[in-house]
């Protein structure tokens, strides 16, 4: 603080003597919400979040069930069997070099 500022600071000293009435302090403290009501607010906030999470998860599971082949009438054993056959066919194609030939043919189609 320079000399000028120090002079003003001293000059304004009488205005620092302003004080609030003593009862205002206790009145404000009475108006402060209790711990329980603050905790209650937090709990209700968490309830909303949990409900949203639950709804999202339920929706995801329902969509998964509706889109699965089993819901279209296929049994789980049939699905696994079909996947095994498909995997075997791919293996055979790799062994026979058929897959490479198919890729070459695809590349030729793309280039022309």
């Amino acid at each position: 603080m320079d000399k000028d500022e120090a002079q003003f600071s001293e000059l304004f000293q009488p205005l620092r003597r302003v004080t609030p009435r003593t009862s205002l302090l206790s009145e404000t403290l009475l108006a402060v919400p209790t711990k329980q009501s603050v905790a209650g607010k937090r709990e209700s906030h968490f309830l909303y979040v949990e409900f949203a999470q639950f709804a999202l998860l339920s929706g995801f599971l329902i969509a998964l069930v509706l889109l699965s082949p089993m819901s279209r009438g296929a049994s789980m054993v049939d699905e696994i069997y079909a996947m095994e056959i498909e995997a075997e066919e791919i293996n055979q194609n790799i062994d026979n070099g058929q897959l490479l030939a198919e890729m070459d043919s695809l590349e030729f189609d793309v280039n022309n």
Binding site: P20, L24, L25, T28, L29, V32, T34, K35, V38
Partner: peptide, 15 residues
């Protein structure tokens, strides 16, 4: 959420 602790903080800065 301790109201008493807030009261102590508050008293110091109220004026």
């Amino acid at each position: 959420g301790n109201k008493e602790a807030f009261g102590q903080l508050y008293t110091g800065y109220f004026t």
